[in-house]
């Protein structure tokens, strides 16, 4: 799949939705063990039970090398994986409100 920054994708196993911030083309991004898709199916598939640790709206998820980053824009039960590795939440520096 062509993963361009700004691309919105949906989980096929839960309510989760993400937006790609950084990625490399042709990589595999899954939620609940199933490839994320442009449109969610009417009937959700059942996810891989090992991949159901949830993702949370507003959190940014990265791989260890931070070569991929996605923003969760809708929470869901599935967890996000990239090329087989579970993504973790990114630590961001908290800045004071400036506007």
């Amino acid at each position: 799949m062509e993963l361009k920054p700004g691309l919105r994708l949906k989980s096929t196993v839960c309510d989760a939705e993400i937006m790609v911030i950084k990625a490399t083309d042709g990589d595999s991004l899954t939620c609940g063990g199933m490839e994320l898709a442009a449109e969610a199916p009417a009937e959700k598939a059942s996810g891989d039970p090992d991949h159901m640790n949830a993702c949370v709206i507003g959190k940014r998820y990265v791989n260890e090398g931070q070569t991929v980053e996605v923003l969760c824009v809708k929470s869901g039960d599935g967890s996000l994986y990239y090329n087989g590795d579970e993504l973790m939440t990114k630590d961001t520096k908290k800045l004071p409100s400036s506007d």
């Binding site: 920054p5 709206i57 507003g58 908290k94």
Partner: peptide, 17 residues
């Protein structure tokens, strides 16, 4: 452009902070 403003907000504001 959308990319400039989205970069600014995601880079400086915590969602539901």
């Amino acid at each position: 452009r959308h990319e400039h403003l989205v970069s600014y907000i995601l880079g400086s504001v915590e969602f539901m902070g």
